[in-house]
Amino acid sequence: MMTIFIIQKQRMEETCFLLILLLSGGLSTLPPHSREYHFVNQRMNWTEAQSYCREHFTDLVTIYNSNINQLLLSMAQNINEWAWIGLYNDRYSWKWSMEGKLFYVGSTHEFLIWANSQPDCVNANEYCVALQGQTQMNDRPCGDSYPFLCYNAKNTSYILVKENQTWSAAQSYCRTYHTDLTSIRSKEEKSNITLTLNGSGVQYVWIGLYRDPWASWSDNTTSTFTDWKSLEPDNYISLEYCGAFDLKSRKWADGYCTTRHFFFCFTAVTKQTVVKMKLQSEADMHSTEIQQQVSQQVSSSVTNTNLTQVQTMLHVFHHLHILSSCQASCCQKD
């Protein structure tokens, strides 16, 4: 959103004006060096810690690299307990191989039905989905070998391949000889797949559903850095879906989200940039239409210089005029 204040000052035939833009970056998208970190020595479960961080700071911490990892550890020296971080393993966030877009597959989905007690991500090692008994879904280790179901978009057909393959090998085969591993995106598709599998005798058959392990952070940013302790994550008894520091070992571990631990928060430090622009033109800025054109051109300039996700406050000093034949000079100062 842009606000324009107009202060008139005529200078012979030519009018000059000065634009000062104050650009503030979005909070959750700021890079790691624009964050401050906090160790909270109060015991809360993961959800309570998340709410506390969002109320008093910005969010639970996201760890982007070893430098941040070590910084957090230095804030909690001589403490041999656990501390929550913003990492969690979302067992209901899945993708189709054919589309690659995240979507939610909960226990009450209309036509994607999980088998009893699924998904359970046994031993933190089940990130691919097979149909069990032709109709119900079961998360399985992606390295297991099963028959698989391909989809061919050219003739809208489903092809059962009874050769046992890992999920990745099955995906490669389907993409080579057909379109992809099959997706189930409607009741009609599920009905057609059930007909294809009817009488096949297969116990498990791979479909195109999968997810990325431990890919979710509380503030919705992305980090591929990890520092798990040996044999972690293990999802002990299929109930450990939240990430934490084991401060004694100084490594990460997965834990029960309902356990009460200390935790780390971060505060986003807003970076402010001042951009000054001096413009010259003979056009009349009393016109509302011309004022709107100036606003649009400045907005476009901000976007084109990759100053995205900003809130812009525009102060215009002297008499504003359209850029129809103007020349601009600008300087930038952090």
Rank of each mutant, 00 (worst) to 15 (best):
N164I: 04
L181K: 09
L27F: 05
L314V: 13
D59C: 09
E289W: 09
T15E: 08
Q118V: 00
L102H: 09
K251M: 12
L30I: 02
C150M: 06
F225E: 00
T259G: 00
V40P: 03
A244Q: 06
H286Y: 09
T182V: 15
N235W: 06
N123L: 02
V294P: 01
V274W: 03
R250T: 12
E110D: 11
D334Y: 07
M98K: 10
F39I: 06
S300D: 12
I85V: 15
Y88M: 08
F39M: 13
H286I: 01
V298P: 00
T29W: 11
L231R: 11
Q272G: 04
E289M: 08
R250F: 01
L279K: 03
R43Y: 07
A283F: 06
A83H: 04
T226W: 07
T273R: 02
V302H: 04
S168C: 02
F262V: 02
F103L: 13
Q327I: 10
D180E: 15
M98R: 12
Y52A: 13
N152C: 01
S34N: 14
S117R: 10
T222K: 10
L112R: 02
L195V: 02
S97G: 06
H38W: 12
F266L: 06
S223A: 15
T47E: 08
Q296Y: 13
